[in-house]
Design a protein around this nucleic acid. Sequence first.
DNA 1: TCTCGAATACTGCCCTGTGCAGTATGAGGA
DNA 2: TCCTCATACTGCACAGGGCAGTATTCGAGA
Lengths: 207, 207
Amino acid sequence: MPAPGSTTAYALLGLLRLRPWTTYELAKQVQRSLHWFWPRAERKLYYEPKLLAAAGLATATVEATGKRPRTVYAITEAGTEALANWLSEPPEPRGLEFAALVKVFFADAGTLAQLQATLDRIEEESAARVDALAAMARQSLEEFAFPERLHLSALTMRLQLEQELAVLRWARWARAETRQWTAADRPGAWDSEASLRELLALVEAQR
Amino acid sequence: MPAPGSTTAYALLGLLRLRPWTTYELAKQVQRSLHWFWPRAERKLYYEPKLLAAAGLATATVEATGKRPRTVYAITEAGTEALANWLSEPPEPRGLEFAALVKVFFADAGTLAQLQATLDRIEEESAARVDALAAMARQSLEEFAFPERLHLSALTMRLQLEQELAVLRWARWARAETRQWTAADRPGAWDSEASLRELLALVEAQR
DNA sequence: TCTCGAATACTGCCCTGTGCAGTATGAGGA
DNA sequence: TCCTCATACTGCACAGGGCAGTATTCGAGA
C-alpha cells in the first residue's frame, strides 16, 4: 500500500482528521471550504477516499439508513502520520486559470465594447466572491463547526480576500483607464509606457 | 468542421492573428506569456493547432529546414472571425490551485515550524514571480516584439503583479502573526476573532 | 575540422481528473 | 398520499498532463 501522492488525498485526510465523514458530506464540505483554493470535481471526491482506505490511511465502514447504504470514512494512525509528514514536503507551485484575462490580452482582435464588457464580468465575479468570503467570515464569528481551527481559517480567508480585492481593484482601474481609449487596438493618448513604469515603481515600493 | 470550444484554441488563434508561427515557436511563446494566466502543457500546444487547421480556422504549411520538417500555422479569415466572436462570449470563472494554502489550512496536523516553512516557501515563490514580472515589464519598455500591443500587455501585467504582491504581502504578514503562536494548533494570545473582524472592515473599506 | 551539447521539431502512451448522465432511497411538508 | 429535495452513489467518454523517446540542425569551442 503505497502512500497516495496527490494533494487531494492529503486534503481529504486533513478533513478526516477533524472527524469521520460520509463521502457525500466530504464532497459537500470540500465544495464549501477547500474549493476556493483546491477545486476538485465531486466525482473525484467519491473516488479518492477508496484509495485512502486501500492504502490503510483511512477506514471505510459501510452503514445503512434504512435500505440506503452509506460509507463512513475515518482516519487511521498511519493516516495521521502521513498527513503530518506531507506538511514538510515542498508544496507544488500555484496554478491559475483566468480565461477572462486571455480575452483582455487579445482584446485588440475585437471592439472596445467587448473589452469593457469582459472587464465588467471580471468585476462582477470578484465582487460576488468578495461577498461570499465576507459572508463566510461573518458566519465563522457566529457559529463555527471547528472553533479550535478559527486561527487557521482567519489566515487562509485573509489571503483569499486580499487576492480577490486585488482583482476587484484592478477591474475598476482597468475599466476607468480604457474609457480613454479610442478602440481596443488604439489606446489613443493613453501612455502605455508610463503605465509600465508606474508598475515597476509599485514593485520597488514593495521591496 | 465545428468551431473548437476551448479557451486554448482561441488563445492560439490570438497568437496566430499576430503572425504565423511554427508549433515549436508557439509552444515557447505560450510558456513565456500566456502561461502566467492560462498554463497548458507543451503536449497540448502541439495538438491543438491541428484541430484549428481541421476546423478551417488556420492553415498548416509543411516546410523543411534541410531534412527536418516543420509545420507553419497561419490564421484564416474564418479564424479571425471566430476569434472576434469568442471575445463576446462570457468567460469561464477563474480557477486557482494553491496546494501550499491547503497545507496552511491543515497546519494544525503538524508543527509550527512546518507552518512557518510553508509560509516561507509561499513568500519565496511570489517574490520570484514578482521579479520575473518586473523583468518582463522592463524588457517590454526596451524592446517589444509587438509594440502596437503594449497597452494590452500593460493591462494584463498590472493584474498579475497586483495579485502577486497581494500574496507576497500576505505571506509576510502571516509569518509575523504566527510568531506570536505557541503551536500550529494553539495560537496562544493571538485573537482570531479580531483578525476576522479586521478582515470584514477591509471589505467595507473597499466598497 | 571535428565534436558535442543545445535548440528545433515533434509523436506515443499511460494516467489523472472532469463532466454529465443515470440510479435509487429517505425525509419532510402540502 | 404525493411531491420535492436531500442523500448516496456509479459508469462512461473524453480532455489534458507528464514523461519518455526520436531525429535533425546549429553554433561554440577544442
